[in-house]
């Protein structure tokens, strides 16, 4: 009897391993566990077992019953689960998802970030300064003489005789050089103001980014090299450029950098991108740096115009109108 039991267990295992679907599982159940199945049949034969064997056989029979039933239940559950999970649920996947709308930085911020990224890679630190400035920091210290036509280059909003809205980020240079001794390698982004009527072409404020390097062995050639590297990264390595002599009271020699702009279907032309030059010795003297020992260069550029050109925006006012239809595009 005991051997019969162990044989049954063996054949059950074998049969179970062959089960692959609910139908063959049901066949297995009928074969072993149904009322006329092998396991109940074995219990029928229990009465014929001798008394001394009854204890062992009974235990083995019970174990077999529990084992086969458990195995069957487990397997059934497993099979049903696997079937359930492969079943297609009844949903319309073409419905839009629950998305979270991300915002965006202003186009001007994005452009500033792009420029900052390039110069940070060249070892520049970033400094900021106030927008309401003294006449001295904005003009005097930067070598603009009083009553000089150079002041007309920048239409100024005055608060009074001595205070104004900064017309460029250059006063940050002055503040920095007053606080920090060379070597200096600084980048100065910020908002600046020009007293101009608002139109498609001009706005009363715009953004600038300015660079300043002061050290013992700085040259005009290095200034050129740095800026060429920058515009190649910013406008692409095939950009056509030129340095053109110019005038700023706070640099000498001074230059402007133009790039060749070729709009589709129109005549190409040179576009001014930035102003630059070697820091005028008078500026260094004004902040207490010895111009014989130290040489500096500086450069500055507006952000709005290159950004507008890059994206084909022809009215500057749209940048400051907060129209969400515009903001969503960037």
């Amino acid at each position: 009897m005991l051997s019969k039991i162990s044989e049954t267990r063996k054949s059950f295992d074998e049969d179970l391993s062959k089960v692959s679907n609910l139908k063959s599982l049901e066949e297995l159940r009928i074969k072993y566990l149904s009322r006329k199945g092998i396991v109940p049949q074995l219990f029928e034969g229990f009465q014929d077992v001798s008394r001394e064997e009854k204890k062992n056989v009974g235990q083995a029979l019970n174990e077999l019953k529990i084992f086969t039933q458990n195995q069957y239940d487990l397997f059934k559950e497993k099979l049903e689960n696997s079937l359930k999970s492969s079943e297609e649920p009844d949903i319309d996947i073409s419905l839009p998802g629950r998305k979270i709308e991300l915002g965006s930085k202003h186009l001007i911020t994005q452009t500033l970030d792009e420029i900052k990224e390039v110069f940070k890679g060249l070892g520049f630190s970033v400094y900021e300064g106030p927008e309401l400035e003294s006449d001295y920091n904005n003009f005097g210290a930067l070598n603009f003489p009083d009553d000089h036509p150079a002041r007309d280059m920048q239409d100024t909003f005055f608060i009074n005789k001595n205070f104004l809205l900064r017309t460029h980020t250059s006063p940050v240079q002055i503040r920095l050089m007053q606080q920090k001794k060379p070597p200096i390698r600084a980048l100065m982004p910020g908002k600046v103001f020009r007293n101009e009527a608002i139109s498609a072409k001009s706005y009363c404020l715009f953004h600038q980014i300015e660079g300043l390097v002061v050290d013992t062995d700085i040259t005009f050639a290095e200034l050129k090299g740095t800026l060429v590297g920058f515009i190649k990264q910013f406008f692409g390595k095939d950009v056509v450029y030129r340095f053109r002599a110019s005038f700023f009271p706070f640099t000498e020699p001074s230059a402007e950098m133009d790039i060749w702009w070729q709009p589709k279907g129109k005549a190409g032309r040179w576009l001014e991108i930035l102003g630059c030059g070697m820091v005028d010795p008078n500026v260094l003297i004004n902040v207490g740096i010895d111009p014989e020992k130290y040489i500096g260069y500086a450069f500055g550029m507006g952000i709005e115009r290159p950004a507008m050109r890059k994206y084909g925006i022809d009215d500057i006012r749209i940048l400051f109108d907060s129209d969400i239809r515009f903001l969503r595009q960037f």
Binding site: K116, Y127, D215, E222, G225, T226
Partner: peptide, 23 residues
């Protein structure tokens, strides 16, 4: 002629404390 003055293509970077007031 500014164009005849070469564009130096390697620059010396001072190793100093990095500042980013805008960060």
């Amino acid at each position: 002629g500014y164009h005849k003055i070469p564009d130096v293509n390697h620059i010396s970077v001072t190793l100093e404390e990095k500042v980013d007031q805008a960060s």
